[in-house]
């Protein structure tokens, strides 16, 4: 976004996702997002902000009753409106996905090796070549004794190994884009860092782009190049991850950063953001964040703030974004610690 050198592999503009019903709900409202080639864009937001729906939209598997409108361009091709057959041809081979709960994402009745080889098998790889490819995939994601683990059933592996197997599945089709939907949330804290390191390393190796969906700012600060903050289905802020975390240009991002418990603080319990998260079904008027915002004025109730470029490469949807420029976040960010 800042440098024009790396073009975006995924470009989203004015994306709406509507849940049909007697009272249609605009789950995503005018979302803008870029994933640059070979980089990681993190999508962050509270539960119910629509971040997983965005992931499903990109992969093309929205739940029944939801429909997407807008501009969704992947590698130069507009994805919305493509036939289901054409859409399916992207899955696994060009866009892959890593799920939150690796135990649930693996079929309990099938051996790990069989599942990791699924995409290759579909491409007609068989026999010894398939076996070799599966073993090297498992090795690549850091699974020790891969031959043994390929024969195991998912419940016989630890949580970390299972997530590694799921990552191997995602890598097997050599995709250009991986959507990682909270890939560390279901894991032990000690395992989380190793999985994040693995993802970062695989990205360096293969140059794959990644859309990393998370609610955890600490996880995101480890891995993200760019950050997109979602609140109640709208984009609150976009920018390079380091800059956004150091000087947030939206009060919501600021509150998020402040709610991360610091290791140096007396209490390791997060400072909650006052009020409860707005839901797309019941979005407040004007700026959706105004009931919880310390800066809220009359204009915030009346007018929806435009997402506008405050500094080069930095977008904020706040009426008072200019005032926040140069004011550091309340807590020390990753590199300041």
């Amino acid at each position: 976004m800042t440098d024009g050198a790396t073009p975006p592999v995924l470009t989203i503009r004015d994306l709406d996702v509507v849940l049909d019903g007697p009272e249609p709900v605009r789950i995503l409202d005018g979302v803008r997002l870029d994933v640059r080639a070979g980089r990681t864009t993190a999508l962050i937001g509270e539960s119910g902000s629509g971040k997983s729906v965005l992931g499903s939209t990109v992969i093309g598997l929205l739940p029944d009753g939801m429909r997407a409108e807008g501009h969704l361009e992947f590698a130069g091709e507009q994805l919305l409106g493509l036939s289901e057959r054409r859409r399916a041809s992207f899955r696994g081979s060009r866009i892959a996905m890593i799920f939150q709960d690796p135990l649930a994402a693996l079929n309990p009745s099938q051996r790990v090796g069989r599942q990791v080889g699924e995409v290759l098998r579909r491409r007609g790889v068989r026999g010894e070549r398939l076996r070799g490819a599966v073993l090297s995939l498992l090795e690549r994601v850091g699974i020790p004794r891969p031959a043994e683990r390929a024969r195991a059933f998912p419940h016989q592996l630890s949580g970390g190994l299972r997530q590694r197997a799921v990552i191997a599945m995602a890598l097997s089709g050599e995709p250009e884009l991986i959507i990682a939907d909270e890939p560390t949330t279901a894991l032990d804290v000690t395992v989380q860092k190793r999985i994040l390191d693995l993802l970062a390393e695989l990205q360096r190796e293969s140059g794959v782009s990644m859309l990393f969906i998370s609610h955890d700012l600490r996880v995101v600060s480890h891995i993200a190049d760019d950050l997109v903050v979602l609140y109640a289905g709208r984009v609150a802020e976009i920018g390079p991850a380091r800059e956004v975390l150091r000087v947030p240009l939206h009060p919501y991002t600021r509150a998020l950063a402040a709610s991360v418990p610091s290791v140096h603080a007396a209490s390791a319990i997060a400072e909650p953001i006052p009020g409860s998260a707005a839901s797309p079904a019941n979005r407040p008027s004007g700026c959706a964040f105004h009931p919880r915002c310390p800066l809220a004025q009359e204009i915030c109730r009346a007018a929806v703030p435009e997402l506008s470029e405050i500094e080069p490469g930095r977008f904020s949807a706040c009426h008072f974004a200019e005032q926040l420029r140069g004011v550091p976040a309340a807590i020390p960010t990753e590199e300041a610690r």
């Binding site: 992969i59 892959a96 693996l106 995409v119 599945m169």
Partner: peptide, 14 residues
């Protein structure tokens, strides 16, 4: 509705 079915669809399994 189980995740592994969703995972298989995401992988483009027939």
């Amino acid at each position: 509705e189980r995740d592994w079915v969703a995972a298989a669809r995401v992988m483009g399994v027939s």
